[in-house]
Design a binder for these strands. Sequence first.
RNA 1: GGAGAGGUGACCGAGUGGCCGAAGGUGACGCACUGCUAAUGCGUUGAGGGGCGUUGAGUCUCUCCGAGGGUUCAAAUCCCUCCCUCUCCGCCA
Length: 427
Amino acid sequence: MIDIRLVRTDPDAVKAALSRKKVDPAEVDALIDRDEALRRITAERDDLRAKVKALSKEVGAARKAGDAERAESLAAESRALGEDAKVRERQATALEREVREMLLLIPNLPAPEAPGGDGPDDNPVVAQGGPDAASYPEHQRVPHWETAATLGILDNERAVKISGAMFTMFRGQGAALARALCQLALDRNADAYEEIRPPTLVLSDTLTASGQLPKFADDAYHVGRDDLWAVPTAEVPLTSIYRDEILDEADLPKRLMAYTPCYRREAGAAGRDTRGLLRTHEFDKVEILALTTPEQGPALHQELRDRALGSIEALGLTWRWVEICTGDLGQSQHRQFDLEVYAPGVAMWLEVSSVSWFTDYQARRANIRYRPAGEAKGTALVHTVNGSALAVPRVWAAVVESNRQPDGSVAVPEALWPYMRGARVIA
RNA sequence: GGAGAGGUGACCGAGUGGCCGAAGGUGACGCACUGCUAAUGCGUUGAGGGGCGUUGAGUCUCUCCGAGGGUUCAAAUCCCUCCCUCUCCGCCA
């Protein structure tokens, strides 16, 4: 959620910032209107309550003094005010809900330094590295699903039998490779990040805190019988770890990482990227996340990007870093970097990591605060940043394609040797 | 899933209708005492919303004792529903 106080004090700045995300200023005006009504009703309600409290005390005093008549008349007066207060209370509750629902749907303000643009095509490439995308030889211009089928390391046909379309299954060395990638990402970040193994079925409140609900309910799997949601990313449980808590500034930044499976319905993506591993309902990912002070936010955002990049470089892949323009920025994001790797077999740049700075947008939803050092009282909202340290399927695909040997085998990148039970080649 | 007990502030814990945002203790912080430490004494110490004022001066007010409803002039306290924790039984990787 954005700060309602900012909406009150500087509505024009909010509208201007949000217009870069294509939000209609009328939405902001509607919010202001409801907020004003809420504050008016709340003031009336509180005033009535104060009177009821004062009168109630007098009733007690009169009773004690044995003045039953006066007590009764005061009680009657208080009763009448109480009726009024109850009416106001109902109105206030309805307005509170309205304001909150509006606030939950209004996106975060984009960073001033986020580039303008209408969509993905306008995302500027900031940097690139690894082998030249044009340098891959002919024997590496083979889609991973073909190589994998030959080697018997991917069995999507049977995955579909088991779970339906867009589910995948790794086999043998392919399964080991998938697990090795996770292990690599965890080990590379264990120097600074606490490893978490969180639950992956979560409450609606948890999914709301990180921004997926209420707007993106269709994208997530819901277990109706128990009203639980399958997490689309470890960001969801990690963000909620300190929900409704107050941290010490000395404990910030708090760095966390988790390997989890991720579940996505891909509701709007029917028929797209259905071959191989480019888009699947269930995949493994290592997520890194930090809770920071506002001052630490930008630095941690860079740190996360560099860490995500570190694993990709260790694997020897061709990569590029794009910055997401305002028209393509997600609802909760203030600023976002994407990392893409080049997959020579499918001749595509694959998005493998998305590193985002949310300012206090998630923290306000999740109510995660900290006590600024040196100040006896008062709290402030933390900032959240997170990113994929490594998302398995697309990296798996890129590794298989860019390490394919002329004989059809796949050389295991050296960084993964410790995790492949001695295998240097998948054949 | 069945039976029972319980959920109060950073923590422990008292509180069965008004004098309770809440005793007492622990912890933390400040001051005093002390050669230092310790001990002792005194004091301070929750969060959130709104109004007026200020820009970090305050002041008034409302809300919060697991959550949500209800009874009452008045609810931490009485009633209802739900959630969670613990113990025993059942089941089970």
